[in-house]
Design a protein around this nucleic acid. Sequence first.
DNA 1: ACAAATTTAGACAGGCTTGTCCAATTCGTC
DNA 2: GACGAATTGGACAAGCCTGTCTAAATTTGT
Lengths: 227, 227
Amino acid sequence: MKLGVSPDTFPPRSHEAKRISVVDAAASVFCREGYAGANIDLIAAEAGVSRQTVYNHHGDKEKLFMAVVRDLTERCNAGIFATIATFPDQPTGLESDLIAFAVRMNRNCICNRDGRFLRKLIQAEGERYPELFAEWREQGPGRTWSALAARFARLAYAGHLSIDDPDVAARQFLALVNAELQTTFMLGGMPTEEEVLRSATNGVRTFLAAFGRRKAPAARQAALAHA
Amino acid sequence: MKLGVSPDTFPPRSHEAKRISVVDAAASVFCREGYAGANIDLIAAEAGVSRQTVYNHHGDKEKLFMAVVRDLTERCNAGIFATIATFPDQPTGLESDLIAFAVRMNRNCICNRDGRFLRKLIQAEGERYPELFAEWREQGPGRTWSALAARFARLAYAGHLSIDDPDVAARQFLALVNAELQTTFMLGGMPTEEEVLRSATNGVRTFLAAFGRRKAPAARQAALAHA
DNA sequence: ACAAATTTAGACAGGCTTGTCCAATTCGTC
DNA sequence: GACGAATTGGACAAGCCTGTCTAAATTTGT
């Protein structure tokens, strides 16, 4: 009796597995081909199920699309908050800690499959489903930014940074560490590990040059110190 | 004899006007609906011509799409270089001059119709037409960034800024002055004049805090000066 | 092993879209 | 006013896609 293994609801088992596999394949196809260009037959084939199964599970192309967006939004937000939880509140080396944090943010939230897919769907179909993406807007950027801002405010309060407006600083931090990846993102590409590291390094150095306390913590600040 | 009015080439007159009107309408529809969802009948209606005229001029949905992208790329690049030509090489007030430049850049190149349309087409269809957007990549970001980097290098050489790598500084400048507009851009929206100004102001201040010579040029630097 | 539920393959209608063809009409030029 | 080119509206075939239906095959739980 392996009853313990199955969940409490009756949908047997493979039922849910297929549902997930359909949503995953749909995300991929919607991103590649756009909503109008996405073909249910292709989604079914890519998911390894029959077309009828897609309709059994999701009823409708539009409902399937909504399920995809909700799924991606949820996973992305979870990833973002999990990563923000690793923010260096008590940094040993501020520059290297912030660089490592920026790399984690990029790798786990922005460059990964879910992040790239969600971003593309928002850009392509955001205007067509206002309420769907309004939800993303509130849950995602809104809460992300204020959570990150709170972390920076704490760093400033502890004397590691000199910040006027933590919300502005948080947005600028993200903009800076992604500054050199914009073109790659624009074309839907995946930056290499080295590009991510370089962009994060350059971004954090500029960020610290602007917001860092002048304790001459690292080498780069030499140019500022000789004044 | 109004011969002087007509251009030197023989295509009568309204011919070219309709061609432009078709490309404009096509840009709008391709952006709104995506390539697959774009309907030639709708493009024709929006351009105020018959469907047959669209085919007479451009032959094909794909050729029409290419014409749209080429058109937008050309106009955007022209606008970007025209705006870079207004870069403050001999600034009177560095902060306010850079803010004004950033606002011009946003208004004339990034937020205007052509800029938003081109960005969305690149994001949505960039992977499907690699050679078409490779051209954009070389002509656009590549040349834009190095042109802007050269201007910043000159400012640094003249003693107004302290910059290690002008290419990095140029990319970070653009990232900073757009930092607060990302969400709006993502959803294809048009930021207000006030949002553009605020983002540019905050971005330039941080940029100068990082790269400015410490002559205490403005008020904001007070926080740095008391050290 | 049996019974119920799920999945599958395929056929199918209905709708929409692209691209072509054509006759009638309008437009610009001489 | 007349001529030629461009434009128009509409009909049209061909193809593709969505969503439904059915009967057979497979899987699941007991």
